[in-house]
């Protein structure tokens, strides 16, 4: 029963990683860059929701919506100001800019909201569902997290495969110049990807802080790195890969904490990543691109 309880916590934590990983993987797929500021957008999202509900007494749902709007705009602005001027620049320049942007967001948050931790209100409530005569208690947060993750995943898979705009995103991710010849505006497609990724980051931020209620300006950093790991683990650029990678990573982390060592859990998570990459360099569901000449 303990095992089952750990497994469910793992899936729940993994769902949060998966939602964050989506942002990494979609931006990588479209813009071919690693947006290391993505983790910090999560933190901004959590702060926005915190202030909306705690300081202004908004309903949690409204708080989440507001934080999605703010993060969407933030994502678009980050892309416009920091990354768009570097579209033709070497990948390393973009990477360093992204790391800089990450610190910029963290330091701005420190300046605006100080580094003293805020106790995040439980947006979802503290109840739990009891199963097996109370032997297994699953918190509501856990259930909501898993359900939200599944809804987001299916929504995105539908969007990308069935809608005109979603298909144009896939076209851009495969071949920017060819997509442009079709009349697709590559820059606005990239903007839209940042917007979607950042809106999801807002949701992830709220879920993360509902499960682990301490909010500081660096709250997003570690989950961001781990979600990036999850994206690579699942195969970067692949949406189902983000789901699989995120959930597996969450399970590994919780099991490592429960059965091996709390201190070593992060090291174990990254060790698993390294092993997977040695065996399968493209990640679990990563595509090997083969081109006919």
């Amino acid at each position: 029963m303990i095992f089952l309880s750990h497994l469910i916590s793992g899936i729940s934590l993994g769902s949060i990683y998966a939602i964050i990983a989506l942002g990494y993987t979609m931006v990588y797929g479209i813009a071919k860059m690693l947006n290391f500021a993505h983790g910090d957008v999560i933190m901004v999202g959590a702060y926005i929701c915190f202030f909306a509900t705690m300081s202004y007494g908004w309903h949690p749902i409204m708080g989440v919506l507001l934080s999605m709007v703010v993060c969407t705009l933030l994502g678009i602005v980050i892309d416009r100001l920091a990354y768009k001027p570097l579209r033709q620049a070497p990948a390393l320049a973009v990477l360093i800019t992204a790391i800089g942007m990450s610190y910029f967001l963290q330091n701005s948050a420190q300046l605006l909201w100080t580094s003293s931790p805020k106790v995040f209100p439980s947006v979802i409530g503290n109840g739990s569902v009891k199963l097996f005569d109370g032997a297994l208690a699953i918190p509501h947060v856990t259930i909501v997290t898993i359900v939200v993750c599944l809804v987001i995943m299916s929504g995105l898979v539908f969007f990308v495969n069935k809608t005109r705009v979603g298909k144009s995103m896939r076209a851009v991710s495969e071949d920017k110049s060819a997509a442009q010849l079709m009349g697709i505006n590559v820059n606005s497609t990239i903007s839209m990807t940042f917007a979607i990724g950042s809106a999801l980051a807002a949701i992830a931020g709220v879920l993360l802080c509902s499960a682990y209620p301490t909010l500081t300006p660096t709250t997003g950093a570690m989950p961001g790195i781990k979600a990036f790991t999850a994206a690579v683990f699942g195969g970067i650029g692949s949406i189902p890969g983000a789901l699989v990678g995120g959930i597996l990573l969450g399970i590994v982390e919780i099991f490592a904490k429960a059965y091996i060592s709390t201190q070593l859990s992060d090291a174990i998570v990254f060790a698993v990543l390294i092993v997977v990459l040695i065996v399968k360099p493209t990640g679990l569901l990563g595509k090997k691109i083969s081109e006919k000449v």
């Binding site: 298909k167 144009s168 896939r170 076209a171 495969e174 071949d175 079709m182 009349g183 595509k287 006919k292």
Partner: peptide, 23 residues
């Protein structure tokens, strides 16, 4: 019609044609 064809390899034939009609 670019050199080397540049079809979207991970998309179906029909999806490629839909992209042609994107505008």
């Amino acid at each position: 019609v670019p050199e080397g064809r540049r079809v979207f390899a991970q998309m179906t034939v029909l999806e490629n044609l839909e992209m042609g009609a994107y505008i």
